[in-house]
Write a protein that binds this DNA or RNA. Structure first.
Lengths: 201, 201
DNA sequence: ATAGCCATGTAACCAGTTACATGATTGA
DNA sequence: TCAATCATGTAACTGGTTACATGGCTAT
């Protein structure tokens, strides 16, 4: 299982509450790991039973108490051991692809609203990720040695979203009976988006 | 849930046994849906309880009996209803990405064997998928109207594998301290592979 | 008013994996 | 002799989602 280890990684970088962790899953590493708050609280309970994490309760005025978690020595060594184990192959399961595969059984154009929603969602994420990128780069546009691996995981997220957009756009073009895969146009859009998000700073 | 519906889609195309289905998941639509035989047998049991599928037992000499399943009228309409429901967004969970993100906590080069195994696995799948492609194309290299959606799902698989290979190669280059992302070289390899698999026919 | 943020959790359920179980046939 | 293919399943467990529960503060 990896959620356990994903949590340990985050706590190793910086301690925090379950709520903090769920924010970090959403906002900073959502491009390779997603977890709901329910899952996180359950997992933190298990992790503290195993003594891989410790916590202290912080009372807060006007707000619910927080449990401030940090990784323990045992947790740290479990994490290192895990890093040296081979990763198991990942397997794709995409509901949308099943629907597209089967679309000819009914009216294929019924998929259009779904496609448009998905394209919009991926465009949004792509923009978000492009906005994160400068955080990993110095003034000369280079990632520091230490952060370059983390930067590459962000670039995976960027590729992933881009890939979906390109492909979904091809599917859409087929459904509405157009011809060209609209590739160059997309690249233009993405470059534009990149400039836009970079300009915000 | 989609495994139910993925099974219905396969049975709608062509009836068969649980074993047949597990082969088809592996060999023909593995690039967007994976299922183990255990899952399939359980699911077929549920599907026949709901009367979305029917089966007849076929006795075989020298081999275990087979249950030959086919979709029922109720199953067919459930499938059509499902096709008109919106698909829920997919969420990525990649163990390997978590490891790469956290690699700096230990010795990052410890990841190399993992990376090489994964690159090889993705190269293999890519080759396999490229080999499937001519099945969807006529003599002039065009997909028939009816099959073009299925063809696009295969192209998703091709993109997916390609994307992983390119990205993993970048990560590898960083770990072994090279500079260039080796992109053009990869494209060359993929084109060569495409010619090779096409030449086999 | 309505939604979103802060902050925590439980319970029921659904989905997926791993281990176990059987047993013949075919090819390297 | 070892692995793969054919052919079916059960049981235990782990992982993940959905629904429910509480409740104040802040911004539109």
């Amino acid at each position: 299982m990896s959620l356990k280890h994903a949590i340990l990684v985050l706590l190793e970088k910086k301690p925090g509450s379950g709520y903090d962790l769920s924010q970090r899953f959403k906002r900073s590493i959502g491009y390779f790991w997603n977890a709901s708050h329910q899952q996180i609280y359950q997992e933190l309970k298990k992790l503290s039973q195993e003594q891989w994490v410790e916590f202290e309760v912080q009372a807060q005025a006007e707000r619910p108490d927080r449990k401030h978690y940090r990784i323990s020595a045992a947790g740290r060594s479990a994490l290192k051991a895990w890093l040296h184990e081979p990763a198991k192959p990942e397997r794709l399961n995409s509901e949308l692809l099943v629907k597209i595969y089967a679309a000819y059984l009914a009216d294929p154009t019924a998929l259009l609203p779904d496609l448009d929603r998905r394209i919009a969602a991926h465009r949004e994420k792509l923009d978000e990720y492009l906005g994160h990128e400068p955080f990993y780069l110095d003034k000369r546009g280079k990632a520091s040695r230490k952060q370059s691996l983390m930067h590459l995981t962000l670039r995976y997220g960027i590729r992933y979203e881009w890939n979906w957009i390109e492909w979904l756009t091809e599917v859409r073009a087929l459904l509405v009976d157009e011809q060209a895969p609209a590739k160059p146009m997309l690249e233009t859009l993405i470059r534009a988006s990149s400039r836009k998000t970079l300009a915000k700073r």
